[in-house]
Design a protein around this nucleic acid. Structure first.
Lengths: 211, 211, 211, 211
DNA sequence: TATGAATGAGTGTTCATTCAT
DNA sequence: TATGAATGAACACTCATTCAT
C-alpha cells in the first residue's frame, strides 16, 4: 500500500478515525474534538475537508455502499437470489460476507443510525435493495428470465434479509461480547454459529435447490 | 386498573414519555427538556423522581427485564430450549413474542444501547440468558435431566438467539419502514416474514422434534 | 421606580446591557459572552430568556417601535404632517425628539442594521412610516380631509425624513464625537445645530404655515 | 485606461470586491473567505497583498479620502463655505456630489464604521474637515479674508454637515430601499428629494447670498 | 505570485443538572 | 410535589491568519 501524502492522506486518516469513534460512541455521542485529537489534526481541518459532522458520516456510508453495492450486484447477476440449480453465486456471497467482517465498525454505526426513526429508509435496507443498482437493460433481461416476479422477489428479499443478512450482521457485531459473556473461544462460537445457520438459512437454500 | 394519582401517576407518565423519546432519538439524542415538555411536567421534577438521565433509562430496562425474565423462565421451565417431543413451550413463546411487539420502543433503545461498546454485557443478551434467573435447586434438577449439557446448550442458545430472537427483534423494529420502502401492506409483510421463519428457524425446530 | 425582582428583572437587565454593547460594537461585533458578563448572568441564561442573539436585538427594536409608533401616531393625528395653519403638533414632535436623545444607543444599532443590505425595509423607515399604525376608520377620515394625497404625502415624507429626522438622528449619534473633534462644548454645538435647523427645516415649516 | 496585468490587477480586483462585500455585510460581518472566492483568488493571496483584514479597509478609505479631499479643497478654495455673493463653488460641489453617488458602497462602510464608538474621530467627519488639508500659507490667507472666524466657521460646518452632507449621504444610501418600500420610481424619488433640499438647505444658501 | 493545507482562539448555542421557594 | 430561574461544561462550527511549497 502506497503511503498517501499531503491532503488526501489527512482526509483518509480523519475518515478512518471517525469510523472507529462513531462505532464506539454512536453518532450523537462522538465528539469532533476527539476525532481531531485521535487523527492528530486540528479540529478546524475536519471542517476544511467535510462540511459538517453529518457529512463525515455520509462520506463513510457512501464509500461502504459503493463497495457493497458492487458485490451485491455481482451476487445478483450470478443468480444469487434465484432458487433453482446450484450456481456460482456462492463465491460472491462469501466475498460479501467477508467484507462484512472487515467493516464491522461501519455496520455498527449503520445499524445504530437505522434505529433512529426518520422519514428516510434505514441505510441498512441498502444491503439488500439492488433495485437502483442494475442498469435498465440488465433489469429487463432478468425480468424476462422471470427472476423478478414481484411476489416471489418480495418473499426472497424478506427471507434473505431477516434470516440471512440480519443474523450475520448481528453475529459480526456481537461476536466478541458473546464470547466474553458466555465464556467461549472465538473458534467455538464460529462453529456454533455456522451450525446454526446451516440448520436454518442454509438448509432452506439447500431445499430450494432440490426443487 | 387502578387510576394512579399524584406522584406515582406523574412518575409513570414520565417513564412512558421517556420510553418513546429514547426510542425515537436514542439515549444521547434524547433531551430531558423534550421529555419534560412531552410529559407536561417541569424539567426539575424529573430530577425529583430520577437521579439522572441514565437512571431513567435504567428504570425502564429494569421494568422490561422483570417481565421478560418471567416469561423466559416460564418458557425454559416448560422445555422451551430442549429438543425432543413436542411440549407446551409454544404458548409461552407466543406470549414472549407478543410482548416483543408491544415493547417495540424499549427494544429499540436496548439494541441501540447494546451497540455501544462497553465492558458490560449488552442488555440484549438478557433476552436469552436465564442463567441467573433460575433458583439453584431448579437448575440442578434441569441439569440432572441433561437439559444443560454445556456443549448442547451453547449450540441451542446461539441458534435461538441468532436465528430466532434476532430476526424477530429486527422484524419488529423495521417492519414499518420496510413496508414503506418496499411498498407492502403490513399483512403482506407479515405473511412473507412468517413464511421466511417457517422455512428456516421453525423448520429446524420441526426437524428437531422428529429426532 | 420599583426594583424588579426575580426573572423579569434579570431579563430587563440583559436587555439593557445588550442595548449598550450592541451600540458599542455593532451586532456582529457584540459577543454574547460579554453581554452575559456585563449583565452578571450566566451565558446560558440569556438563551433561557431569548431564543438567540438576533431575537435579543428584535426584542429591543420591538420595545422601541412600540413607544415611537405611539408618539408618531399622536403627532400625525394632531396634524404634524399637514401644512397649513399652526397646530399643536409641536409638543408631540418635541416628545418624539426627546425620546430620540434618550434612545441614542438603540438608534445607533438601528442605523447600523439599516445599512446592511437586505430584502426587508430598513428598520429606520419605521420612524416615519405610519401607514400600518392608524386604524382603518381614522385613515379614511384623514384621507377625506385630503391629508393623504399621495403626491403631496410622498413629498412630505421625503422632506420630513431626509431634512428633519435624518439630521436629528445623526446629530444625536455624533454629537459627542463632534464636540471632541472640533473642540466645542455641548451647549455651543446645541446652539449651532438649533440654528442650522432653524435656518433650513424649520424655516421650511414656517413658510408653509404662511401659505 | 491602461489594462493592469498580473499582480496589480489582482490587488485591484481584491479591493473592488472587498468594497462591495464590506458594504453588504459590514466589516465584522464580511468574511475573508468570501472576498477571496468572489475575487477568484486564493485566500492566502489576500495576505500577500494586505497585512490583514483591517488594512484592506484602511486602503479603501485611503483611496477614497485622497479623492474626496481634493474635491473638498477645491470647493473651499473657491469659496464654497463662505456666504456672500455667488461664486463658482457650485460646480465643485456638484463634482463632489456626483462622486458620492458613485462611491455609495464605500460611504456605506464609512458610516457603519463611524457608528462604532472609538476614541478616534469618525471617518465621516473627514468629509467636511479640511483643517489639515490646506497648506499653512493658504490657511493664513483665508483667515485674513475673514473666512475662518471660528464662530462663523463652526456654524457653517455644522449647517453644511447636518443639513447638507448628511441628508445627501443618507439619500444615496437608502434611495433604492425607499423606492422599494414606498413604491416609487427612482425618478420620482429624485424629484421629491431635490424639492425637499431646495425648500430647506438650498433655500438657506439662497437667502445667504442676498445678505 | 500563487495555492492547498493547517491552526489557535474564539463564538453562538445546548444540555444535564441544581437551587430557591 | 412542583416550579421558574440559574449554571458549568461542553459542543459543533467559524474565521482570521500562517505555513510550506
Amino acid at each position: 500500500m502506497v503511503v498517501k501524502r499531503g491532503g488526501e492522506a489527512t482526509k483518509h486518516r480523519i475518515l478512518k478515525v471517525a469510523e472507529k469513534i462513531f462505532a464506539e460512541k454512536g453518532f450523537a455521542g462522538a465528539r469532533i474534538d476527539e476525532i481531531a485529537r485521535a487523527a492528530q489534526v486540528n479540529k478546524a481541518l475536519i471542517y476544511y475537508y467535510f462540511e459538517n459532522k453529518q457529512s463525515l458520516l455520509d462520506e463513510l456510508f457512501r464509500g461502504f455502499f459503493k463497495e457493497s453495492s458492487r458485490m451485491l450486484v455481482n451476487y445478483v447477476r450470478h443468480g444469487g437470489l434465484e432458487t433453482g440449480p446450484p450456481n456460482d453465486a456462492d463465491k460472491y456471497m462469501e466475498e460479501y460476507f467477508s467484507y462484512f467482517s472487515r467493516k464491522r465498525d461501519l455496520l455498527r454505526i449503520m445499524l445504530a443510525e437505522s434505529l433512529k426513526r426518520s422519514d428516510q429508509a434505514p441505510p441498512l435496507f441498502k444491503l439488500v435493495d439492488f433495485s437502483d443498482l442494475l442498469g435498465e437493460e440488465e433489469a429487463e433481461e432478468m425480468q424476462a428470465r422471470g427472476a423478478f416476479q414481484t411476489e416471489k422477489m418480495n418473499q426472497i428479499l424478506v427471507t434473505e434479509f431477516f434470516t440471512g443478512v440480519v443474523p450475520l450482521l448481528m453475529f459480526v457485531l456481537f461476536k466478541e461480547q458473546w464470547c466474553g459473556h458466555f465464556r467461549l473461544s472465538e473458534e467455538e462460537l464460529d462453529r456454533y454459529y455456522e451450525k446454526a445457520m446451516d440448520m436454518t438459512h442454509v438448509a432452506y437454500h439447500r431445499s430450494g435447490e432440490k426443487q
